[in-house]
Amino acid sequence: MLQNIVNALVLGSSYVMIAVGLTLVYGILKILHIAHAGIYAFGALFAVYLCEIGLPLVFAVTLSLILSALLGMIIYKGFYKHVLDRGRIVPLVMSVGLFATMEDLYRLMWGPYKRPFDVYIDLPDVMTMDLYLSSRGLLMLIVTAVVIVLLYLLLMRTKLGKSLRACSNDLGLAGAFGINTDRSVAFAFLIGSSLAALGGILVGLYDNTVYPTMGSVPSYKAFVVVVLGGFGSIRGAVVASYILALVETFVVYYFGFLLPRDAIAFLTMILLLMFKPEGLFGKVRR
């Protein structure tokens, strides 16, 4: 029982990291930012690469986060920004194209294989009678907790956070009130992308594997979270991440299931989109 809950917390934490970026971007631009998955994978792959060429973990991670943030920014400034006024199909299709390009680039650069994330983490393994949590799992929980707190402070306490929330409410209106929306959006991409990369790194550490297509499934699942969380609400997304993880873990554990757990998540999403399209915590909109 306890073990399941802890497993679910770890899994949920990985969803949080990806879902925040997706939620921010969807909340503000109303774009399904599928290429976000590419950044998640990039973060992990690049960090592993840096470690492999001998950089210490902390440097590798920092560098990878910075580069991922820039990558996110480039995706916004270089691509989305220019097609926002072309209806909803164009940015969406573009995002799919970007994602396909990124994944394949990683495969070409780093090979299609799974690679281990071989580093030493200076944390103890948690091992009791009925619980095992590796040091890497512990790291994931700690980092996520810190991130959630920082994110909360950022959004609620800083001027930047306020303008972000204003943009998310109504981009046009925020602009009319003199908020520099372009800068806010770019900032959303910076934060979202570095968190996604961090998520990729943490998951890569936890599973001790990274590979080019590692982003696909988690990020589609993160969309499940965005939906559950009520589209655009960060708090909703965080709560939804853990709910989804708990449901997945317990359904698989207690009922077993014909299909892999990812399929459960997708089925949940489809049903949810159909029967509770405003999400679990969302406002009713027409």
Binding site: H82, V90, M94
Partner: peptide, 15 residues
């Protein structure tokens, strides 16, 4: 490079 080419074609066509 099949996927890469698909991806780039999609992006640049949309652009």
């Amino acid at each position: 490079y099949r996927m890469l080419i698909y991806g780039l074609i999609i992006v640049f066509t949309m652009f």
